[in-house]
Structure formats: structure tokens, C-alpha cells
Design a protein around this nucleic acid. Structure first.
Lengths: 162, 162
DNA sequence: GATAATTCATATGTATACAAACAATAATAA
DNA sequence: TTATTATTGTTTGTATACATATGAATTATC
């Protein structure tokens, strides 16, 4: 948590600021803006993810893609994006890195020549199996500061934001 | 909202999947993972931000940096990062782009030769003044799906996650 | 059946985001 | 004073994330 203002000497820029708090531009408090709060919460969730997934070398989006491919058996690149809430251009990179590691493999869609179908390789399926417990752990750890009821409430409210 | 699975023809990959739902790797449902839900909520907040800030050409982090600098009058690069929850390497880029546009200016810290102090230029202060209402609007629009009480609850729960 | 609109994958450019390594400076301990 | 440690800012590399543009393939429409 390196976001506490800290009481180092740099906190008093240089004597008094010209304007008193009352007459400042406006009542814009960064910490009260939902976007900033969401960003910070996401940062923390990502950090916890990194910690738990260290041995697997998977990012959150890579793991999400693997999980969704496993659920369906085969998925087009475009559908992977929709199921994981990723931009097509973002999927491109994620898929490329997973393929380079031999975790997924592709074949052209016989019914639609625009599409590429992706599936897990044995190596990918094995890695996913081993990584799933870490995924469960990430959510538990991230939500740990809240009670069970609060966790439900939070997930419900966030869901309704989207 | 491009994340609904959609009922296009690509949703039935190709007949039946080998394993029934019961015997699949594990009960890992992406949509129930807090990290994924946070990521999506943050995506939506960012999209709303982009819409409201179109004319100002400011990103969320750029705006946050401007607001924090305005609050303090002068800030070191490092402190900007801590106040806006940005990595030092990330601050580097954000600050650089703001400077290139002439919205902020720097001078060496007289008391510490490692530091660079940043302040708003007149142009930057003017832009910030005009942009603050958009910032307020972004939070209102993003939280619009929730009641006032729910908004308070959400911000409180998210705050406790960090 | 020809045309228009849509979809899919790709490519480029900009902007976070963070890890890791580094040099310069400052603060502290021995 | 010297040695150690911590802080500040920078650089490099990897990975999202999205806007925009393009081309190929498909679907819808007339």
C-alpha cells in the first residue's frame, strides 16, 4: 500500500498555498470518484492475482481466455473477446502469447473462412487444471476484508454497474 | 455492452462438448470472480470518462495528476504517483505527455537535487477548471444505475478492499 | 444474382501499468 | 567520517486496452 500520503517532508510543498480550500477550482475529490476507486480496487486484485499465479506465468486475461476456451471446447477469436470482455485487438495479443507457449492451438473454421477456432492443447488443459485453485484463491483473498454478506452485495452492485 | 454471449451461430461450437458440466475442471465461473467484475466495471467507467472528456483530450490518469497538482500547488513526480496510485514508471509517461502539451511545468527542487517539482501552467489551470464539471459528470453517470444509498454502499465496500 | 451491410481477423498508434535494473542523492548508522 | 540503507527519478521490456483503418469473407437485402 504505497498510496498513503506519507508524512515525509515533501508533503508541505512550500509554505501556504495561494488559495484557501473554499475557493479552490471545485469540490473535486479524486478519492470520491468511482473511476479512481475502481482503478485502485482493480490494481489490488491484479496484484493478488500476480502473487498467486507466479508459478504459472499467466495474466488475468490469459487465464480468463483459457478458462473460457475450456468451457466451450472450441471458440473463435472474436467470441473469446466477447466472453472475456476483451477488445478484438487485445484478444489478438493475448491469444498470440498463449499460442507461442503452446497452451492453445488453432484451426480454420470449416463453416466460416473468416474465423479461426482455438482449443486448449494437452499442455494448456493441464496448466489450467493446476491453476484453477489459484484462481479461486485470488477471489477469496481479494474479498477477504469483507464479510460474506458484504461480498455478495459488492458483486451484485458491481454487476449492476455494467 | 458487447459482452452478452449473443445468440449468433458461433455459440454452438460444434455439437456436444466432451465433458458434461459436472465433471469439468472445476467450478470456476469467470463472471463470479471479483477481479473480472472489477475489470469490467472499470472498463465501463473509463468508457464514460472518454465520452465526457472528448473535447479536453485528457485520460483519467492525466486528469487525476492535474487535479492533485492543483490541490497542492507543487508536487514532486514521486508524490504525484503516490497520490494518484500510479507506479513511478507510469507517472513518467503521464507527466511527460502533460508537459509536452504545456499543461504543467517543472523546476528542480531547491532542497533536494533528486527531485523535480511540477506545477500547473496557466493553460493547465484553465483546462482543469473547465474539465472539472466533466469529472463530476463521469461519476454521476457511472453510478447512475444505483440508488443513492447503493452508491454510498458501493464506494464504502470498494474503499475497504484497498 | 448483384449490391450493401456486417462480421472477423489483422495492423498501427497511443496510453496505461508494472517489474526490474540503474545512477544520483539523501538520510542514517557505525 | 565512512559505510550502509533508502529514496528519487529514469530506462527497458512485457502486457493489457482501445481507437481506427483495412481487407477478406459472409450475410442480408433488394
Amino acid at each position: 500500500m504505497a498510496d498513503a500520503p506519507s508524512d515525509g517532508p515533501e508533503c508541505e510543498p512550500s509554505g501556504s498555498v495561494s488559495k484557501p480550500a473554499d475557493t479552490r477550482p471545485d469540490g473535486y475529490v479524486l478519492e470520491d470518484q468511482i473511476g479512481h476507486v475502481l482503478r485502485r480496487a482493480h490494481q489490488r486484485a491484479s496484484a493478488i492475482f500476480s502473487g498467486e499465479f507466479g508459478e504459472f506465468e499467466l495474466t488475468p486475461t490469459q487465464f480468463a481466455a483459457l478458462a473460457k476456451i475450456a468451457d466451450s471446447g472450441e471458440l473463435s477469436q472474436n467470441l473469446i473477446g466477447r466472453l472475456t470482455a476483451m477488445d478484438p485487438a487485445t484478444v489478438q495479443g493475448v491469444i498470440g502469447r498463449l499460442e507461442k507457449r503452446g497452451l492453445i492451438a488453432s484451426k480454420p473454421d470449416p463453416g466460416d473462412r473468416r474465423r479461426t477456432l482455438w482449443r486448449l492443447t494437452d499442455k494448456g488443459a493441464d496448466l489450467l487444471d493446476r491453476a484453477v485453485p489459484a484462481g479461486i484463491r485470488v477471489t477469496a483473498l481479494t474479498l477477504a476484508p469483507l464479510s460474506g454478506a458484504e461480498q455478495k452485495t459488492l458483486l451484485d452492485l458491481l454487476e449492476r454497474l455494467s
